[in-house]
Design a protein around this nucleic acid. Structure first.
Lengths: 185, 185
DNA sequence: GACTTTTGTCAACGCTTGTTTACATAAGGA
DNA sequence: TCCTTATGTAAACAAGCGTTGACAAAAGTC
């Protein structure tokens, strides 16, 4: 048996991401994670201290928001909608935002992490495009639509009602446009 | 000790609703439910057959959607947004939709129930107002925004970013208006 | 009031969970 | 090579879970 602590930790983190994203925090057992990583369950405690710490280490979100300051003003919403779709439907099957959304439903820790992502990534991005005064309100509105879309599609797994991706992107893009740049009522 | 099976079942259902809505299905134990209902845990099995059946009995959703056929066409979105807000922030602290949203995050059964509510209550309502052809697509879009709003506010418990309710209702109402009656792109 | 049925109580079962402990084995330097 | 350290294994622990079955007590019936 070849031994390599770093590789073992990495395998655990990858397996943890996949399992957490599919079943949430409570629905995932350390034994399952260890089994998928082909590693002894006890090593989770040796290397991370426990399930909770493994979760914290495995889930760190970077939305990788595009720089929209050079985008034509009327295309901001569509560009952003496209960005999220590409991330979600992209190559990596275990998108971390899904993990958080699923887990935050019953875990206050994860809920706080979502608010952190909003405050540190979405709000500043909007503040750089629109008036600083309303940035947090606009970010909140964006969150309701984006989280709702992700929840509906990837957590609930609701079929798209035979709507082409393009159309969904277009409609949601319009909404984001209103939330981010149009004047609020 | 006074004995009344009906009253006992009722107390169990009420306690179950509250607990499930606060902690979701997995996060709630039958012992907790029984304790809150001041009832012996074994009675859950006697009267309902088990935890799963109690959940099914406790969570039956009726959105009580208003009749929008007589509403002025341009007020449909705002009226609907107002309706949901009133329900959520209303008297009963244990709104059932919250239970479902929270639980559906990790429980396929609950996820199916949400789709059922959408298909049997939202889609027909929209079909009666707009073209039948696009009703299910429009219902899907409405779901992404409404579920996202509920998730953000009541599951994550995210603060409203100092936005007055009126303004939230107004903005969300505009979005619903676009999703329900405006022509799709 | 005796009897049956309904309703509630109690203790335990079997199982799964996260975690820990004691031990075995590979890796690496002297 | 020998010894120490790092890494992996196996078994068990303690706690919590949903559930069950045997029993007690109230309610209803004659």
């Amino acid at each position: 048996m070849t031994r390599d602590a770093e590789a073992t930790k990495e395998r655990l983190i990858l397996a943890a991401r996949r399992m957490f994203s599919e079943r949430g925090f409570d629905g995932t057992t350390v034994r399952e994670i260890a089994a998928h990583a082909e590693v002894n369950p006890a090593l989770i405690n040796r290397y991370f201290g426990g399930k909770e710490q493994l979760f914290a280490e495995a889930v760190s979100i970077d939305l990788a928001l595009p720089d929209l300051s050079r985008t034509k003003r009327e295309d901001i919403g569509a560009t952003l909608a496209m960005h999220f779709f590409r991330r979600w439907e992209g190559d990596e099957h275990d998108d971390l935002l899904r993990v958080l959304i699923r887990t935050a439903a019953t875990n206050p820790n994860a809920a706080a992490r979502i608010q952190e992502v909003l405050g540190k990534q979405v709000t500043p991005m909007i503040a750089s495009l629109s008036s600083h005064a309303t940035a947090s309100q606009r970010a909140y509105l964006v969150a309701t639509q984006i989280l709702g879309l992700a929840y509906t599609r990837y957590v609930i797994g609701m079929p798209t009602a035979e709507m082409e991706h393009e159309r969904v992107v277009s409609v949601i893009g319009d909404t984001l446009q209103r939330y981010i740049v149009d004047p609020l009522p």
